[in-house]
């Protein structure tokens, strides 16, 4: 007769193994589905499905690129600064308030942030714009990246701060040169997650960018001013094209999904390779 403890151990191991497989299976299913359907669509219609504005998704791709870059430029510096502040000056009233507000912002449905920007920006300006979308996305990213930065900073053991101070470093030098340096992988991961969130969000864009799917944002002579044009984004396009009856629209949605997933993976792998982990 086998030892009941050993039997329990076997049951335990088999259970967590089976549940793990069950957990990751849908992820692979989704990935496989997107890759197969997406490449089928591209194979069927040719690269024109990506490079045309009339029979393709070029406007959505361009819009998504502009939106995620612009949202990151607006949101990430603020998020990093706020995260550093809250972690370093955690005893101050402002830090405590910032922490509570950012945690609440994290829980706000993102469609509300889109509505907010619609009211304070789109209505007064009288036009949908990529800038309005980018601001809404920045609001979505902000608390998200901030929490990551904060946790990365807080996870650095205090002995390294002491080391910095004990050779005459100032507080800024300790925070930026030592603590943030040690936490760089965590900070980079937070930034990456924020960027990915900006690329993937749909709801904040519903009331802000105007879904201009057949024209590129280039009505102004000054290139930067074109962010005031309406535009489109890949997730929004997928959401709306998937509801259309015609097969062609479905194919465009699949092609867009494939590009989106590929972009995620590219950014993810690049950051992992470029930012080395600091072993402590």
């Amino acid at each position: 007769m086998a030892d009941p403890r050993i039997i329990k151990e076997k049951i335990f191991l088999v259970t967590i193994f089976a549940l793990t497989i069950l957990g990751i299976l849908p992820v692979f299913h989704v990935l496989a589905e997107v890759i197969i359907k997406g490449s089928e669509a591209i194979a069927k219609h040719g690269l024109g499905i990506l490079t045309s504005t009339s029979n393709g998704i070029l406007a959505s791709l361009v819009g998504s690129a502009i939106l995620s870059i612009l949202a990151s430029l607006l949101g990430i510096p603020l998020a990093i600064a706020a995260g550093l502040f809250v972690a370093e000056f955690s005893d101050t009233k402002l830090a405590k308030i910032t922490r509570v507000v950012s945690r609440s912002l994290l829980e706000v449905p993102t469609v509300l942030l889109g509505m907010l920007v619609y009211i304070i920006m789109v209505v007064p300006m009288g036009s949908f714009s990529l800038l309005a979308g980018a601001i809404a996305l920045a609001l979505v990213m902000l608390p998200y990246v901030m929490v990551h930065v904060e946790q990365a900073i807080e996870s650095v053991p205090p002995i390294y701060r002491e080391a910095g101070y004990s050779i005459g470093m100032t507080r800024a030098e300790v925070l930026l040169g030592v603590v943030a340096g040690i936490a760089r992988r965590g900070i980079a991961t937070g930034v990456l997650m924020g960027f990915a969130k900006a690329m993937g969000e749909t709801a904040p864009l519903l009331f802000t960018i105007g879904a201009a799917r057949t024209t590129l944002p280039c009505s102004h002579s000054i290139p930067l001013a074109n962010v005031l044009d309406p535009g489109d984004a890949v997730p929004l396009m997928i959401f709306q094209y998937a509801q259309m009856p015609q097969k062609m629209y479905h194919d465009m949605a699949w092609a867009g999904s494939l590009i989106l997933v590929a972009a995620f993976l590219a950014v993810f792998i690049a950051v992992r390779l470029l930012v080395k982990e600091v072993k402590t």
Binding site: I159, Y160, E162, A163, G164, Y165, S166, I167, G168, V178, G181, I182, R184, V278, K279, T280
Partner: peptide, 16 residues
């Protein structure tokens, strides 16, 4: 602290 430097109890070289 620039003239009075210190070594702590736990070795803490900057790991990065």
């Amino acid at each position: 602290r620039r003239y009075v430097t210190m070594v702590s109890q736990t070795p803490n070289p900057f790991p990065h």
